[in-house]
């Protein structure tokens, strides 16, 4: 069952600009509830624009995005049409963008740059307070979120600026999950982190996913796609190219056409194939199998 759907979604940033172009063009796709989706494509392919329509941060210029019963479009006529004959409850729900934003938590690229409060706990409380929670309630929710992202209680009254890069990012993510979103969207969550920091963040995201949340990740990191994604959405020049699995994507001859970096493991396997390696190289998805196959080719 889908949870997010886009229907002929097109987005133009500045229509008045004589050089304007479609940042997204006629994109129709569905994202299943509970899926772990990676959205990939080169810079300017429309990845970040697409995910910003999911919580109505921007509205499609034409077509629409639908998150459960919430319709997102700047085409007023279309919205009226979509809400025609709908239940009163749906019409009422569509009046409250704040509820949608609670449902769809959006973590921007380098979220740590947006930390601002004097203490970690105050920073995380900011979101829940904005959604109407009282001071004490917000504090409780913030504490729970910080513990969920692995920040110990002894840190709560510290300045967020004293933390390392990975810790800051976890605090920033805690600020978003404090609103308990059903859908968590993360734009380049591992950019700029060291290998341990990347693993920490991805394990954290995996835990959210295991709790039943839908996870949508925008990324250039193809090793992350290979190891974590269940579904991959490929965008190129604002157009949807395909919705596929990581295994199929990395073995597709089209991958280089879309300027996606093949994970080093697959790059190496392709090189061996092209150089005429005398052994079985089919269906290798991990490092240990690769080594085993090289050994077999040499000695068996």
């Amino acid at each position: 069952m889908w949870q997010i759907k886009t229907n002929h979604l097109t987005y133009v940033y500045d229509k008045k600009d004589p050089n304007h172009y479609d940042a997204l063009s006629d994109v129709s796709l569905e994202i299943k509830k509970g899926d772990l989706v990676c959205i990939v494509g080169k810079t300017g392919s429309g990845k970040s624009t697409l995910v910003q329509t999911f919580n109505n941060l921007i509205s499609p210029t034409s077509g629409y995005c639908q998150v459960e019963n919430f319709y997102i479009t700047s085409d007023k006529k279309l919205k009226k049409e979509l809400l025609k004959n709908q239940d009163k409850s749906v019409i009422e729900e569509n009046k409250h963008v704040a509820r949608l934003r609670r449902k769809v938590g959006l973590v921007f690229q380098f979220p740590e740059y947006q930390l601002f409060a004097e203490t970690i706990i105050k920073d995380v409380m900011f979101g829940p307070k904005n959604f109407g929670l009282k001071e004490e309630e917000a504090k409780e929710v913030a504490k729970k979120s910080l513990i969920e992202v692995g920040i110990p209680e002894s840190y709560f009254e510290k300045s967020p600026f004293e933390l390392s890069g990975g810790e800051k990012r976890r605090v920033a993510i805690a600020g978003i999950i404090a609103s308990d979103p059903d859908i968590l969207v993360l734009d380049e969550p591992t950019a700029g982190l060291d290998p341990n920091g990347k693993i920490e963040i991805m394990n954290l995201i995996k835990r959210f996913h295991e709790k039943g949340r839908t996870i949508i990740i925008v990324t250039h990191d193809m090793n992350l796609v290979l190891n974590f994604a269940k579904t991959v959405i490929v965008l190129n020049d604002g157009k949807l190219i395909e919705v596929t699995s990581p295994e199929k994507l990395f073995q597709s001859p089209d991958i280089e056409k879309y300027s996606l970096e093949i994970p080093t493991l697959f790059k190496f396997i392709n090189l061996l194939k092209n150089d005429g390696f005398a052994g079985n190289l089919s269906e290798i998805y991990d490092f240990d199998t690769l080594i085993k196959r090289i050994y077999e080719a040499k000695y068996e």
Partner: peptide, 29 residues
């Protein structure tokens, strides 16, 4: 280096001066 080290553990030695996956692929082929 990960590949070279893993192969070494299995008894397959590779030349020291190999620095890229292109060079390693050439050698193994």
């Amino acid at each position: 280096l990960q590949v070279k080290n893993a192969l070494k553990k299995k008894g397959i030695e590779t030349p020291k001066n190999i620095r890229t996956i292109e060079e390693l692929s050439n050698y193994l082929c």
